[in-house]
Design a protein around this nucleic acid. Structure first.
Length: 327
DNA sequence: AAAAACAACAACCGCGGTCTG
DNA sequence: ACAGACCGCGGTTGTTGTTTT
């Protein structure tokens, strides 16, 4: 009755597979199927443990594996599924024919995760990163900038359009921060800071009424505007929206491949995500901003250990070279 | 041209759930 | 019912290739 353990035999080879080993494994499985992975290595003449053989087959040798770069559609699918399923690579791979969980996992870790971080989105929650108060010094600098804008009359040679452009940039950054703020647990300090910021924003929006249409409904609400939330689009996560791609045709509720457990999870996540939807419909896509603005500065959190020091907002916004762009 | 840093990906490790005797 | 092997999964590491300094 007692079975010998699988992988404790000594002397079994580890590490990269040679073409000869691959050939042996493929020949055997094509003839006999894999059957018991544990028994396979000996039958196939391989000095490997069954587990190693299984991994090599499922991740590399299987004939139905699609190799090569991920398409935009695949990328979008992964983003959407990850926002719902999390790191359930196996579940995600079921929706991407020919892609293995390992391949998707690697693609996520090396490409998509970094991409999201760069865009200021927490790759785990698919929401804006929220360590808002790390950015407080920059916010204060922004508030000071606002005062400068207000107090300093613009030179005659600076056109009104250029002035508006500078202000529009500022508004966009401030709005991004405010969007992040509500998900932070309030503290007396944070509330007072937010109040003061909101007050600044209020003044700015009054200062430039022609730009109020650029403010999101969330922000308008926060500064006393109407509640426009009912008019806003649903079914888009921030990450998929920011990638500026059409929503793919995945329909979780009708997808037979999604297990009931997954679906339950998905529904719960969906609900919470809907309630946290961010409204960027009034702004140009942030992906555009990141392309034209090297800062990606709305992100100041340390998500994982990959974060690198980012230039402060004041550095960016007050950068002379940048300002010269508008002259 | 060489070294260092970075990126990509294959493979391993360890854990937890399931199966089997 | 139970012990222990099997299997699959997700996290992590190691190796190799590429780019930058």
């Amino acid at each position: 009755m007692v079975r010998p353990p699988c992988c404790d035999e000594k002397g079994l080879k580890k590490g990269p597979w040679t073409p000869e080993e691959d050939q042996k494994l493929m020949n055997y499985i094509q003839k006999h199927g894999h059957g018991s992975w544990r028994a396979l290595p000996e039958l196939a003449g391989l000095n490997r443990c069954g587990k190693s053989c299984r991994l090599r087959w499922t991740n590399y040798l299987r004939p139905d594996i699609k190799r090569g770069k991920f398409s935009q559609e695949e990328e979008q699918t992964i983003l959407q599924l990850h926002s719902i399923l999390g790191n359930k690579w196996s579940a995600i791979s079921k929706h991407l024919p020919g892609r293995t969980d390992n391949e998707i996992k690697n693609f996520w870790n090396t490409h998509l995760r970094k991409k999201l971080i760069q865009m200021g989105i927490d790759p785990m929650t698919h929401r804006p990163r929220t360590d808002f108060f790390t950015a407080l010094p920059q916010l204060i600098a922004l508030a000071n900038l606002h005062q400068l804008i207000e107090q300093q009359p613009w030179d005659g040679h600076t056109s009104g359009t250029q002035t508006e452009a500078v202000q529009a940039v500022n508004l966009q950054y401030m709005q991004s921060l405010l969007q992040s703020a509500p998900s932070i647990a309030p503290s007396p300090t944070s509330i007072s800071s937010l109040n003061s910021l909101t007050s600044d924003l209020d003044q700015i929006s009054l200062l430039t009424p022609q730009h109020q249409h650029m403010l999101s409904p969330t922000l308008l609400e926060s500064i006393g505007g109407n509640d426009l939330a009912g008019q806003l689009p649903h079914n888009q996560t921030l990450s998929t929206t920011l990638f500026n791609q059409p929503v793919s045709n995945i329909n979780m509720s009708s997808d037979n491949n999604v297990s009931s457990t997954e679906r339950c999870h998905a529904e719960g996540e969906n609900n919470s995500q809907k309630s946290m939807l961010l409204y960027e419909n009034s702004l140009p896509p942030l992906s555009d901003m990141s392309a034209s603005n090297p800062s990606n500065a709305m992100s100041t959190s340390k998500c994982g250990d990959s974060s690198t020091p980012l230039p402060s907002w004041s550095e960016i916004l007050l950068d002379e070279e940048l300002m010269r762009e508008f002259d």
